[in-house]
Simulated assay, not measured.
Amino acid sequence: MIYVVFVEPESPGNIGFLARTMKNFGLTNLVLINPCELKNESYFQAMHARDVVSNSVTYDSLENFLIDAKIDSAVGTTGTAGGSYNVARIAVSPEQLADSINYQGNVALIFGREGNGLSNQEIKLCDVIVSIPTHDYYPILNITHAAAIIFYEMFKREKSYPVDGLEAATKAEKESLMIYMEDIIQKLGYPTHKSKNASLVFKRIIERAFISGREAHTLKGTLRRINARIKEKGNEGEK
């Protein structure tokens, strides 16, 4: 189970905004640590996530919540990641967090105060610290912006966007394209080193490309026709 924990929120509106962001990514367990008073603004800004606000639970301290909820992984967030001189603040990126976190246990994603973030003592309670790379000129993100980035990295591994009749090209289909292209390159009479470079470039393009099976089939047909036309021209030249 994933809990989203907001430590000492100062603005009722930000509670609503966070709830709304949570619901965008299927998260419903909001925990408020020593919060400001919930007002109409919280529910207004939450929009269709008012239930997340209504069902939120309140604790007087982060430590008490972590103990009471039997949290297996406490993930703190910070905008000022440390280095080797400050082991407690060595941070991972949201992507690294999403790749390594154990979703089977109880996970707490902990966001600090709007102004000061998490205290050093609160960070020491965390098992992992996550930080979002930002520009040095203005490194601190609004809590809901930071939350959206972290939620997205976690959620994108569960969500796919299937389109009827659209399937990604298989490895075999991409390799088939390479066979046709290499045959064409050989017929062009390039020097050996240029043939190798041309084949390598095409291979890299195809490997990076997010093409569908239908697109691969169409491209394969085009390469086949080009190959046949080159062969025809070659036969005409030999007569």
Score class of each variant (00 low, 15 high):
Gln121Tyr: 10
Ser73Cys: 13
Met1Thr: 06
Ser100Ala: 09
Lys220Glu: 14
Val128Ile: 15
Gln104Glu: 14
Leu97Val: 01
Phe202Met: 11
His48Ser: 13
Asn106Tyr: 08
Ala69Arg: 04
Ile149Leu: 14
Phe111Asn: 01
Glu10Ala: 12
Asn40Pro: 01
Ile211Trp: 01
Leu223Trp: 05
Gln45Tyr: 14
Pro133Thr: 09
Pro94Phe: 06
Ala19Glu: 09
Asn40Leu: 14
His145Ile: 12
Phe25Leu: 07
His135Ser: 13
Leu223Pro: 08
Gly165Met: 07
Glu238Ser: 10
Asn235His: 11
Glu37Met: 12
Lys194Thr: 09
Glu41Ala: 08
Ile71Glu: 02
Leu27Gln: 13
Cys36Tyr: 01
Val92Leu: 08
Ala91Tyr: 02
Asn197Thr: 04
Asn24Gly: 08
Tyr190Asp: 07
Tyr161Asn: 11
Ile15Arg: 01
Phe202Ile: 08
His217Ser: 12
Asn86Gln: 12
Val130Trp: 04
Lys220Val: 02
Ile226Ser: 08
Lys233Leu: 13
Ile149Trp: 07
Arg225Val: 09
Lys39Thr: 15
Ser131Val: 08
Arg225Trp: 03
Thr77Asp: 10
Arg229Thr: 03
Gly213Ile: 11
Ile132Ala: 06
Gly117Asn: 06
Lys23Ala: 07
Val7Thr: 07
Leu62Ile: 00
Pro191Phe: 02
Tyr190Leu: 15
Ile123Cys: 06
Glu8Ala: 08
